[in-house]
Design a protein around this nucleic acid. Structure first.
Lengths: 345, 345
DNA sequence: TTTAGCAGTCGGAACGGGCGGGTGCTAAAT
DNA sequence: ATTTAGCACCCGCCCGTTCCGACTGCTAAA
């Protein structure tokens, strides 16, 4: 546990370094900042902070820059019980985007990722709730000119999954409609992931003879709901990694962008936030993926109840404005939850 | 018009500079490359090429690097009538991706952009055919728990557009179904952009009294098909801009990524390729957008017939392997057209 | 018209000194 | 015992210099 003054110094170092991006020295600390002690005293404390691993010196006679551990302390020992309110401007920006009113989930998530990236000046990533947890609102069967049948699973959130079935015998539009109606009756309101089981249970009823069409359709539904290759992920502000020049070199920036491009890796990363009810902050070395160890990630989940939660993240340099970012992520997560509620009703 | 030898020299300079990224001097040209003339001769020719603006020297005593005009000549004066075949490896990669078989358009376009970016080691951008040119396969009306009505426009390519209507009077599911059936009868097979007109024409029939529900639905359809804010654009390989280190500094790379992030700008850019039946190559300064003048862009369109064409582009450094890129874009455009044909049948 | 040879030029790496910010230590002050 | 002032020192950064190598432009001969 840190001394009160040492804590104040470490906090000041973090804040100042985040602001200017330069190692901060003892003089600057004693003069410009509110610490009314002399530079020499601060030097002593800084030596200790360095021994404890909270700050690091780029070279022997340089100011201190916070280590990952330093940032970690900064966050874990935030004074007061709550994170500060988001500045009015940013708050307006976010609320404004949500008041606009969305007509589809993907539009909402896309806009969200953009607005979040603008507010935080970092990269924002938003993952939709996993498709398999969506509830079915309607199943549609479409006749096609080539004889195949288009299959649509429409969720209550507005998500639409598509499939294609090659039926052995051609059906009339009327027959298909009828089949659709019965299937809808069986499946209505079920979670996507439960659809195969429900279909199987229904097919096993003694009153139902084996129907190859339904079996094929069941197969396709199975494929759709297990095909998790396609988690929907929305990104915003990728350019911030480069233009905000907090990232120094092309090498690391490229690594980060590379990871951001791989939906699977990203999905796994975002998945971590689903269980934990609260917000997660991953700083530098704490991150399991090497390329991301130059970054800090702020993760949160949003959504309907305990299941059906999506996640969102802001990825920026370790040298980010943590309070601001955390507050922004918080607000956006709350707003998104509300929106989802509205869309699904 | 360039001398045969001067042409050969310019071509050699382009190829060599693309390969190594360093100004290429007269000695290297005469020794390593197949030109059986002495360095001095080449020097003379290079002086001329410089006067004509085909090459440029970074400083007084340096080798030559192709100017945009040089690349332009390289492409416009390609010997032989056709671009070379794509190397077998890349060809397999592309064909492999398409053999896989896609179940939905967006999956196909996403995969396409990825594979294209891998093959060309650049950024690939694929734009779906404009939504308004899609043909309606089915219109769906969905009841919702909160009384509003979900509206789905399903295109023959599998594209689904969504809307939300707030009807004044609540309808039973049965009534909605009936309304849906009549609307489908009126609108079946029409292009999205023609839907409002068709609805208006139908509503004007003397046999039809004014129906506020249909009017509201018509409004929403109008909104959907004109809301072009949401052209679907798929990107792949953004990281290549950074990692392939052909781009030197963060500044320009950031500019390019920034442009890539703005769907509207990108859509406008891609739109240019729609009219022209053939491929378009935009090199450096030729590009209207300043940030992109560090890049070269290879554009082509694909699709069904004259209308309903999507576009795709590869964006890389001006120092790109043009023959390879052009061939790859060509092949992918052909494959995509075939796929679209298949999906829409 | 092409080639060989040579002087000239320029950029980039390597080197070195001066500058300034910042430390660590010591000794005095509280 | 803790804090402060003073001072010597350290080290990265900037800037000018030099050296080296690569390539050109020119001239004269083939």
């Amino acid at each position: 546990m840190l001394d009160i003054r040492k804590g104040a110094i470490l906090r000041a170092i973090v804040r100042e370094f985040v602001r200017v991006g330069q190692p901060v020295g003892s003089r600057a600390l004693s003069e410009k900042l509110g610490l009314s002690v002399s530079a020499a005293t601060i030097r002593n404390d800084m030596a200790l902070l360095e021994d404890l691993g909270y700050i690091h010196r780029p070279h022997a006679s340089a100011g201190g820059v916070p280590t990952d551990k330093g940032y970690r302390w900064f966050i874990d020992n935030w004074p007061g019980s709550a994170w500060p309110e988001l500045p009015a401007g940013q708050q307006r920006a976010i609320n404004g985007a949500f008041e606009h009113g969305f007509h589809a989930l993907e539009e909402a998530l896309d806009t969200t990722s953009q607005i979040l990236s603008e507010v935080t000046e970092a990269v924002a990533v938003v993952a939709a709730p996993p498709s398999r947890e969506n509830r079915l609102r309607r199943l549609e069967l479409l006749t096609r000119a080539d004889g195949r049948v288009g299959l649509l699973l429409i969720a209550d959130t507005g998500l639409v999954e598509q499939g294609l079935v090659d039926l052995p015998e051609s059906k009339t539009e009327h027959e298909l409609n009828e089949l659709g109606t019965t299937l809808n009756a069986v499946l209505d309101g079920a979670a996507f992931e439960d659809l195969p089981a429900k279909l199987a249970a229904d097919a096993a009823l003694p009153s139902h003879p084996y129907d190859p069409c339904r079996a094929l359709i069941a197969d396709e539904i199975q494929r759709i709901v297990t095909g998790s290759t396609w988690e929907r992920i929305y990104r915003g502000g990728t350019a911030n990694i480069l233009t905000r020049e907090k990232f120094s070199d092309l090498e690391t920036a490229g690594g980060v962008v590379g990871v951001l491009e791989q939906p699977l890796i990203l999905a796994a990363l975002l998945g971590e936030a689903r269980g934990a009810g609260t917000m997660i902050v991953i700083i530098g070395q704490e991150h399991p993926i090497r390329q991301m160890q130059a970054c800090a990630t702020v993760l949160a989940s949003y959504g309907l109840g305990d299941q059906r939660r999506g996640t969102l993240a802001v990825i920026g340099p370790t040298r980010m404005d943590y309070p601001l970012t955390i507050s922004a992520v918080n607000l956006v997560a709350r707003s998104l939850s509300g929106l989802l509620d509205d869309l699904a009703s």
